[in-house]
Simulated assay, not measured.
Amino acid sequence: MTVALLPPKMDFVFKRIFGNEDHPNILISFLNAVLNPVDPIKSVKLKDTTIEKSHLEDKYSRLDIKAKTNNGEHINIEIQLKDEKNMIKRSLYYWSKLYESQLESSEKYQKLSRTICINLLDFNLFKHDRFHSVYRLKDCETHEELTDVMELHFIELRKMKDIQHIEEIKSKLEAWLYFINHPESELIEELEKFEVEIKEAKAELIRLSGNKKERERYEKRRESLFNKLSALDSAREEGIEQGIEQGIEQGAKKEKIEIAKNAIKNGFDNETIIKLTGLSFEEVENLREK
């Protein structure tokens, strides 16, 4: 019986494939596809490759990939399934942490290396149609680049166009994103014939999917992320309901104040106005003073 493949979009699965020390060529190929460097990356050194039980069960833990390239670049890759309305600030924060962590106390700033954050998003973040956006520090008027030491990538997976034939894939990055979106498609089987690293990634995905222990770990992670998303949705719905209630209350209060103002103009006494509006004596007196 054929086992259904685990989704590469899930951070646990993504890290097990792209952050695998036994298969560094997968990550090297992916990074070269994303960054398109003049001097291609030849090797990577991975950090934090272990995935502890606590990481799987903690709904707020991050299963990102940290690596250093042979060019000295520090790279962080994160995949996000749902828009939590904080992606840009979140990415800047983690970029700053990665940049700052390069220096020990008393070391010189010259030691700081180019630092890159790559965010794969299973939701639309920007209004434009491009699936890959790159940001650096530039002058607002002349667009002159200050430095390339800071670079943020946002890859919006849902903006990848539907591809029917292999000839429609125009870049290695498109091939990788199609694998992440549709690992079981016939098109991926075609790509495997001449894209060695994608074939290697597919083989690792098949191995993971057929391993009972790995599937159990995946299910734990999926459950923790589901609980997180449910908690966020509940909090958001509660916030909306509270906002509606507050709006109604504020509107009713405003209406009472207007009635009281008109009553004051027409010579009504405080006791009558209080009975009409439900406002307090102090509130009515304050309106008389204005």
Rank of each mutant, 00 (worst) to 15 (best):
E21R: 15
E21N: 13
S101L: 04
D22Y: 11
Y93Q: 01
I75T: 04
I28S: 04
Y60Q: 11
G72E: 06
V38N: 09
I41S: 03
R90W: 00
M87L: 15
I79F: 03
N71D: 10
Q80E: 11
E78I: 04
V44S: 01
P24R: 05
P40A: 05
L92Y: 04
L46A: 08
E52R: 11
I26R: 01
Y60F: 14
L103S: 05
K68A: 09
Y60W: 13
Y60M: 10
H74I: 14
I65S: 10
I77Y: 07
R62E: 12
V34Q: 06
E52K: 13
A67Y: 08
K59Q: 11
Q80D: 08
V34F: 06
K89W: 05
E52S: 12
I28H: 03
S105I: 14
M87K: 10
K82G: 05
Y60R: 12
S29W: 01
Y93M: 00
R90V: 01
S29C: 04
K53T: 14
E52T: 12
K89D: 09
L35G: 03
F30D: 08
A67H: 07
I51M: 07
D39M: 11
I41E: 05
D22N: 14
L81W: 05
H55R: 08
E104I: 03
L27R: 02
K66E: 14
N36T: 13
S54R: 11
S29K: 00
I28R: 02
V34I: 15
E104G: 12
I88C: 00
E57Y: 11
K47E: 15
K85M: 05
L103C: 04
H23S: 14
P37S: 06
H55S: 14
K45T: 10
Q102F: 07
S96E: 01
P37D: 06
P24C: 03
V44D: 00
R62C: 12
Q102D: 04
D22R: 13
K85F: 10
S29L: 00
V44A: 00
T49N: 11
K89Y: 06
T49Q: 12
I26Y: 02
D48R: 13
K45N: 09
E73M: 15
D64W: 10
